[in-house]
Design a protein around this nucleic acid. Structure first.
Lengths: 144, 144
DNA sequence: GTGTTTGCAAAGTGTTTGCAATTTA
DNA sequence: TAAATTGCAAACACTTTGCAAACAC
């Protein structure tokens, strides 16, 4: 998928644009990670997880850079962070309005299908505040 | 509120019962923590937080025991755990069905008033699973 | 060249664990 | 007395940081 080094310019034209638009320099590491994240189906990754993918893909990148990139991407609106349990933070490449199933048994996170709409009446936020986002996590477990 | 030591027996009759019912021995530490948690208004505490309260109330208890107790209380259904951000886990003494405002600016957690009902249409859980719980966190921030 | 980004290893944070000593029943 | 619980300190997982070297523009 990714060759291995130095080919920063050519083949990722669209990723380069995407990063630029987000105000991030298209470095080799960011491009490689962006490629893992955004080329293909939507994903829910955690840092360690993406780091492993990178290694497997012969991408030389440090764990610290993975963390930094994930946060930069999130701030730039390219990713959405979902926290489901202490020490279990996912980054979702699907940034459209949607919610999640969290499987308590194996810790996996899955989008709730769009057509299975959860109709929410938004509550009135406390005086002086406004709603930034609504997170709905439907915790599921195996039927015994 | 709590005197200071050794008076495990008498004055916490109802707490003792509550713990016994939950299958937990009413030790001095658990009684003291239960007293902080369950006598008075509903609270959203984190471990560190409750530990500080204990110290302030001259209750001799270790941080490890606070963690253990919080989890035991949660398993026993006396508390409900709410995770809002990586490394930010709250325990809610209100175990009725309800949801939360999470204030992004200061990290505080507040119950959404009961009468401000969020009507959810529950999604169909994936094959072979059932819904264990639905967590809704409404993230709010100060109006600029 | 200048400012940004990276990698490393070290430091942090929040939480859990192992085990001897203590407490409960 | 037997079994459960506690405290401590060490171990832990996950994440962030400081800084010199490498890179983008």
């Amino acid at each position: 998928m990714i060759e291995s080094g130095r080919d920063t310019g050519r083949q990722f034209a669209s990723l380069v644009k995407q990063l630029r638009r987000a105000g991030l320099r298209p470095t080799r590491q960011r491009l490689a990670l962006a490629s893992l994240l955004f080329e293909g189906d939507n994903r829910h990754v955690c840092a360690e997880n993406l780091f492993d993918d990178a290694q497997a893909g012969n991408i030389r990148v440090s764990l610290a850079t993975v963390y930094n990139s994930l946060h930069q991407f999130t701030e730039a609106g390219l990713l959405r962070e979902v926290t489901v349990a202490p020490g279990r933070s996912y980054f979702d490449t699907n940034i459209t309005d949607h919610h999640h199933f969290y499987h308590e048994d194996d810790g996996s996170l899955v989008d709730i299908p769009d057509d299975d709409v959860i109709s929410t009446h938004l509550p009135v936020p406390p005086e002086g505040t406004k709603i930034a986002r609504v997170d709905i996590v439907v915790r599921i477990e195996s039927k015994k």
